[in-house]
Computed example of a mutant assay.
Amino acid sequence: MNTPTALIIEDEALPRQRLRDGLAQLWPQLQVLADAEDGDHGLALALDLRPDIVFVDIRLPGLDGLSLARRLKGLAHIVFVTAYDAHAVQAFEHGAIDYLLKPLAEARLRETVQRLQQRLQWPPAQLAQWLQQWAPPTLAPAGMPPPPAAPLRWLQASQGERLHLVMAADVTHFRSDNKYTCAVTAEGEFLLRLSLRDLLAQLDPGQFWQIHRAVVVNLAHVARVERRLTGMEVLLKGSDARLPVSQSFQSRFKPM
């Protein structure tokens, strides 16, 4: 059998390098021909290099991963890389599609490698029907505004080397941590690989309020709001934590 080849299409440098390193360790015979940081460049490379396998992130600048898979039309085995919530993961499982969750877990990558090694004996699966059934929620008919996406109910978060599914309702507040976000719950703190700004756009605006440039609070966990000489603070139920409210967000609490 010829040396198997692959292409990685991922816009974030750290997940891209981790995938490369993981594949090199678990499948040293696999030759990664190239990688791309956006969908348009990735599609051009895939059509030019004709790899056996394409690892593609769903959310990409330009052409998204699902649209890219449609364009390839069965030319390669596809593995979607996703940081989507549990609803999307469930859709992948029902469609028997290979997928990897970010942050990458070695055990999950090992399973995918083993499946791919067997699937290379057959032509790539035709994904057209599955892709038509599961379209990204942002797509809408021409001339029509996209329907609003449902707020996130589950969050994929890491704690050390372990991946967890955390209910958004259980999060007392979110705290910005550079490009990532810390989700604080009664069970501890979890790291989300999303900026606070990107996360806020996916949360229920009636339940989660931004009170500081680096803090978003879950109103269901707010015990009271206090005005002090140093400014306004939010106190949480069953916690000694005091969350500062920036001047620009204090007007939200005046009617309360």
Rank of each mutant, 00 (worst) to 15 (best):
M232D: 11
L120R: 10
W154T: 12
G160D: 01
E161T: 06
V89A: 01
P124V: 05
L7R: 13
D40G: 08
L152I: 00
L23A: 11
I8V: 15
A150G: 01
Q25C: 11
W27P: 08
A214F: 02
V79F: 07
R115E: 14
H212I: 06
P123S: 15
S176G: 07
P123M: 06
L163M: 01
S251A: 09
L139V: 12
S246W: 04
A44E: 14
P15E: 10
A201M: 05
T82F: 04
A107L: 13
A168H: 04
L109H: 09
F174S: 02
V81T: 15
D21Y: 09
D40W: 02
Q210T: 01
A24W: 10
P124I: 04
A169G: 03
L165H: 09
L72V: 05
P244Y: 04
H87K: 10
L131D: 05
L66E: 04
K179Q: 11
H77N: 08
L152N: 00
F80L: 07
Q247L: 12
T185G: 06
W134S: 14
V215H: 15
Q132C: 08
Y99R: 10
G74Q: 14
G42E: 05
H173K: 11
P244A: 02
L165E: 04
A241D: 15
D21M: 13
L155R: 10
Q250S: 11
P61R: 05
P4H: 11
P136E: 14
L7T: 12
A128F: 03
R227I: 13
A220Y: 03
V32H: 11
D198C: 00
L7N: 12
P137Q: 09
Q247P: 01
E111L: 12
L49H: 05
L33Q: 15
Q117K: 14
A44N: 09
E161Y: 00
G39H: 07
V215P: 06
A241N: 08
L68R: 10
V54Y: 02
T3M: 14
F55M: 05
V245N: 02
G160I: 01
V32R: 07
R50K: 14
P148H: 02
H77R: 07
R71A: 14
L60C: 01
E189A: 04
L163G: 05
P28M: 12
L7I: 10
A88F: 11
V166Y: 04
Y180A: 07
A214L: 03
Q31A: 13
E189D: 10
L66M: 15
V113T: 15
P103E: 09
D204S: 02
P148T: 00
R50C: 03
R193E: 07
L23N: 12
V113M: 03
P4F: 09
V32K: 06
P244W: 06
G231M: 06
A36Q: 08
P15F: 06
Q17H: 10
T82D: 06
N218Q: 09
W209L: 10
S251F: 07
Y84I: 09
Q121I: 03
Q121F: 09
L203C: 05
L100F: 09
R59K: 12
W154V: 04
L131P: 13
G42C: 12
F92Q: 02
L203I: 00
I211Q: 03
A220Q: 10
L131H: 11
L60V: 04
C182N: 14
L219N: 02
R224C: 08
Y84N: 08
Q121R: 15
D48H: 07
I53Y: 05
Q250N: 04
H164M: 00
V79N: 13
R162W: 00
